[in-house]
Design a binder for these strands. Structure first.
Lengths: 138, 138
DNA sequence: CAGTATCCAGCTAGATACTG
DNA sequence: CAGTATCTAGCTGGATACTG
C-alpha cells in the first residue's frame, strides 16, 4: 500500500507540474484545431500568404467552411480572453463586428508559421514511414 | 436546399483539405500530451536539459509519472511507426528494450524546444490577460 | 449580422488486471 | 521487465434551432 501510495503521490505531483507547465498550456491552446485556423486566417486568409487583417465574424465563418457558430464564437472568445485577438463592435445598423490579431497574436502567428514550415519539410517523411509500415502488411 | 447543399459541399471540401494538410497532421501529432513528453524525455530527461539519450520502457514510465502502460505503449508505437523513435530489444534474460530518438525525432525535438521557448516567454502574458478577465468578475 | 442555447454521439484517456 | 486486453466515464465537437 505504501509503495502504491508513493506512486500515486508522484503521479499527482507530476500532473500538478503539467498543469502549470507553460509548454503544456501552449500545447493545449494550439492543439485546438480552430485556434490555429483562426489565427492563420486572421494572419492573412486561409492560405497563410499576405498580411494580417481584421475580419468579420461571417467572413471567418465563410473562410473556415466547416466551423459551427458555437465553435467559432467559443474559440474567438477564448482567444480574446487570452489577449490574442481583439474584438471590435461598430454600432452600424446591423452591428458590425471585426476580429483582429493583437501583438501577442501576431507573435503566436509567427510561431504557427514555424510549425507550418516544419510540417511542410518533414511531415512527408513521417507519412512515408507510416505508409511503409502499412504497406508491410499488404 | 441548393444553398444548403453548397454549404455542405464546401464544408466537405474544407474538411478534406484539412485532413491532408501537413500542418494539421503535425498538430494532431504534437497535440497528444504524451508525444511531446516522451520526445522531450528522450531528448534529455524531463527537464529538457542535457543530451538526447536512449531510455528503457520502465525508465520512461518512471519519468512520466502519470502515464498508464497503455498510453505509453500506444504512444511509443505510433512514434516508432512515424519514424520518430527507434525501438531496440536486447535479448538479455529479462528482455531489455530501449527507445531512442531518430534523426527525424531529433528534428522534432528542436521544434518542440522552439515551442517551449515561445511558451516560456509569452505564456505568462497570455495567462495575465486571462486572470485579468477573471478578476473582473470578482 | 452576430451570435446563444441545447442536446447528443463518438472518441479516447485512464484504471485495472493479467501475461510471456 | 515489457508489455496486452478490456471496460468505462468524461469531455468535447458538431448539428440544430432560435434571438437581439
Amino acid at each position: 500500500m505504501t509503495a502504491a501510495d508513493k506512486r500515486a503521490e508522484s503521479k499527482a505531483k507530476y500532473n500538478a507540474f503539467l498543469a502549470v507547465c507553460p509548454s503544456q498550456k501552449l500545447l493545449d491552446r494550439i492543439s485546438d484545431k480552430w485556434v490555429t485556423l483562426i489565427v492563420t486566417a486572421l494572419g492573412s486568409g486561409p492560405d497563410c500568404s499576405g498580411d494580417p487583417r481584421a475580419m468579420r465574424y461571417s467572413e471567418l465563418a465563410r473562410t473556415l467552411a466547416g466551423v459551427s457558430p458555437k465553435m467559432l464564437t467559443q474559440t474567438l472568445r477564448s482567444l480574446e480572453l487570452d489577449g490574442l485577438v481583439s474584438r471590435t463592435a461598430t454600432p452600424t445598423v446591423p452591428v458590425t463586428v471585426t476580429y483582429e490579431l493583437t501583438d501577442l497574436g501576431l507573435s503566436l502567428l509567427q510561431l504557427i508559421r514555424g510549425l507550418k514550415s516544419w510540417a511542410e519539410t518533414h511531415m512527408d517523411e513521417v507519412l512515408a514511414n507510416r505508409d511503409l509500415a502499412v504497406g508491410h502488411s499488404a
